[in-house]
């Protein structure tokens, strides 16, 4: 059923990773990805892989959920790996007609592949262990400093959470309009690209009208409930750091420390 579609891909569980503060997880993911770009050697990646494996184990998430995210970027991965593998100049170690594989190409491909895969897994881990609401809250608080350079962080976060609420509703509405137009003989499946795009008009126009109407209704409802932006607003469940989170920060610093040490030693 369309009502069950959720944005993001939260996997409900009560693991220690799930319980961590979203701010810690967001910062952690960000730094982790940053380190993947800074370090380009296999030893650092081995350490990163171990770290990630431990986190996945602690999060108690089935592996198939972790790897599901990779499916989406499979072709991007294949393309970039392929290009690097065959078109990098250097010491040739394998040749097949016009295709050749060089040692440098192989190394570069390996690094690039690992980097891409790790980025996806790390960010999947973030969305799998954090509810969309927590993620929005976490982003709002983590990026709050941007508000000093006039970025409306609170407003953006509010928009994100409203989007989370309305995307399933609009999906269902799209489905309903499609059915209604099909019942009036609309045909979305045959014809060339121009015809198909034109066939979308009877769906898109009502959908936009409905979205605007809903936005207007919601704005009035929010007004009626005294919404005045960020000013004077409290939270039912404000984000609060607990002992676990401080531990988490310590682990994060430790991990970064080890990586930097390795980097300076070699």
């Amino acid at each position: 059923m369309l009502r069950d579609i959720t944005v993001g891909q939260y996997y409900p569980s009560n693991s220690v990773i799930h319980q961590l503060d979203p701010r810690l997880k967001i910062l952690g993911t960000f730094l982790y990805i940053l380190m993947l770009f800074i370090c380009g050697d296999l030893i650092s990646y081995a350490i990163s892989a171990t770290f990630l494996a431990i986190l996945i184990f602690l999060a108690k998430i089935p592996l198939r959920y972790i790897f599901r995210g990779l499916r989406a970027i499979f072709f991007v991965l294949l393309l970039s790996v392929g290009l690097n593998l065959f078109f990098t100049e250097g010491r040739v170690i394998f040749r097949f007609y016009f295709l050749k594989i060089t040692y440098e190409g192989l190394m570069k491909t390996l690094i690039l592949g690992i980097r891409l895969v790790f980025i996806i897994i790390a960010s999947s881990l973030l969305t799998l262990t954090t509810t969309p609401t927590n993620l929005t809250d976490g982003l709002e608080r983590s990026l709050h400093f941007l508000h000093y350079i006039k970025v409306p962080v609170h407003d953006i976060a509010m928009m994100m959470s409203i989007a989370l609420r309305f995307i399933p509703i609009l999906m269902e509405e799209t489905n309903k309009i499609m059915k209604a137009q099909t019942a009036r003989g609309a045909d979305f499946e045959t014809g060339g690209i121009v015809r198909r795009v034109r066939a979308m008009i009877p769906i898109l126009v009502p959908l936009f009208i409905s979205a605007f109407r809903r936005a207007n209704d919601l704005a009035v409802a929010m007004d009626a409930r005294c919404y005045r932006g960020e000013a004077g607003r409290t939270k039912m469940r404000p984000l609060k750091y607990s002992g676990k989170d401080y531990g988490g920060y310590l682990v994060l610093i430790l991990f970064l420390g080890i990586l930097i040490m390795m980097k300076t030693m070699y």
Binding site: P132, T133, S161, I162, L164, R165, R213, R214, D217, L218, A221, M222, R225, C226, Y227, R228, G232, R233, T234, K235, M236
Partner: peptide, 20 residues
């Protein structure tokens, strides 16, 4: 069109949150 929260309790909390 009048429910703001992603869960029921978040929606109910929306008013009091705005009131501080």
């Amino acid at each position: 069109n009048q429910i703001v929260g992603v869960t029921v309790e978040e929606d109910v909390a929306f008013g009091p949150e705005n009131l501080g």
